[in-house]
Design a protein around this nucleic acid. Structure first.
Lengths: 228, 228
DNA sequence: GCAAAAGTGTTTCAAGTACACCCATGT
DNA sequence: ACATGGGTGTACTTGAAACACTTTTGC
């Protein structure tokens, strides 16, 4: 019954960023170590002795990419014996969402070893990272329909069309503008401001909206259930 | 960057059994090792080097309880540094469902160190196992509403009322008999047989039904979505 | 014959879906 | 003036919810 186990525990992060022109993107890093050298991979690494899994993800993200995360949730744990060719590594995958300013910022700072890739144009990744990403996308699709986490990918204040486009992008299907707005506004946690969007090109500028999280939590406690 | 990590990887299993008299129950074992000696806990243990996480759960369940599982799904990974007082253990929790015959069988064989506990009458458990169970129940509640996994807790053939009671027990709310039956039967994967229930007491015996899994998978491919 | 459980339809109400025209701005 | 994107309401259809009496069996 005395087993000397030598399995490493790692975390990996699927970080999503969004804007209406590029769609949904994922943050990747180019590997520097021998295994899969030069290959793109998810940010992540071994968990330290004294830290929680969430702390490990946050730390690794900060070390490897410099981004700080806005919304973070555990996704799934990947543990096939052969998933790392060197030794046995069990990886607890997380997925996270960042606001557009962080998304934009890093796209600029880009030192060619950290980059955003549109989910439609992902390269082949190291280890089982493509599989992890496809699970993350599946989860995001599901989650966004019954929890209003979409706001975590938008600025504090945003035109309504941005939210609509986001949902269409993530769910990968068209949505009726009027019906979508009716549904969202009925919940009561989205507030309309008086400010107007500063549109880049032509078109009528729309009002800006903001998500009221406290109101949402309150409504949730009272038993509303958000669903798209 | 060379970190000598000494974290152990374990698996724990929340195994659900069901019958209409006792309701929903969970399989627990009484601990024999020093830490938490004599305390009830979830079956589980350290993952071996060459096996997958699923294999580890199945093996541990077999070694510790003798039950073989019918439906198994990863739940969540628990990794707080202090969750095991001895050393750092990250535990990948699974939940599983067993058919009534296995549920019954083990209740009889019971050597007082393996037992079923009704979810309403759980003792205080070792480690963070109470927390794991409450997550498992939450997940089961959610899952059973959008995937027909309830059948994994019933016999091959069962009276319709069993399914109805199961849903009421798990969801912890009343359901209208006629509306529930309408909804389930509309999907088309539940088949009515000519056999009749052999009722123990008084009452009109009902027809037995069976779940047609192939038909369900086919319908799922064609894009139905089950939802209660 | 009475208690226990199963079987069965209709009506009402709420939510989902489909759909088209006008408005404000930039060029 | 025209191209671009934003804003808005109604009619129709479908699904959800509420609801009560009859039938078969054991005792």
């Amino acid at each position: 019954m005395t087993i000397t186990q030598n399995i490493k525990v790692a975390v990996d992060a699927v970080v999503f960023g969004y804007n209406s022109t590029d769609g949904l993107s994922i943050l990747l890093i180019k590997r520097k170590s021998d295994t899969f050298h030069g290959t793109w991979a998810l940010p992540g690494g071994l968990v330290h002795e004294g830290e929680s899994l969430e702390q490990a993800v946050t730390r690794e993200l900060n070390e490897e990419t410099g981004v700080s995360i806005n919304y973070l949730e555990q996704l799934y744990t990947f543990g096939k014996p052969e998933r790392d060719p060197r030794n046995r590594v069990v990886s607890v995958a997380y997925y996270g969402l960042v606001k557009p300013d962080i998304f934009k910022l890093k796209a600029a700072t880009d030192a060619s070893d950290v980059a955003w890739f549109e989910v439609k144009k992902l390269p082949t990744l190291a280890f089982d990272h493509n599989e992890i990403i496809s699970e993350a996308i599946k989860r995001l699709k599901g989650k966004i329909t019954y929890e209003p986490i979409g706001f975590e990918l938008l600025d504090e204040k945003f035109p309504f069309s941005e939210l609509e486009k986001l949902y269409m992008t993530v769910l990968d299907r068209p949505l009726d503008r009027r019906n979508f707005k009716k549904k969202i506004m009925k919940f009561g946690f989205l507030e309309e401001t008086n400010e107007k969007q500063s549109l880049s090109g032509a078109g009528r500028p729309g009002n800006l909206f903001q998500f009221n999280q406290e109101k949402y939590f309150q409504l949730k406690k009272e038993g509303i259930n958000f669903e798209i």
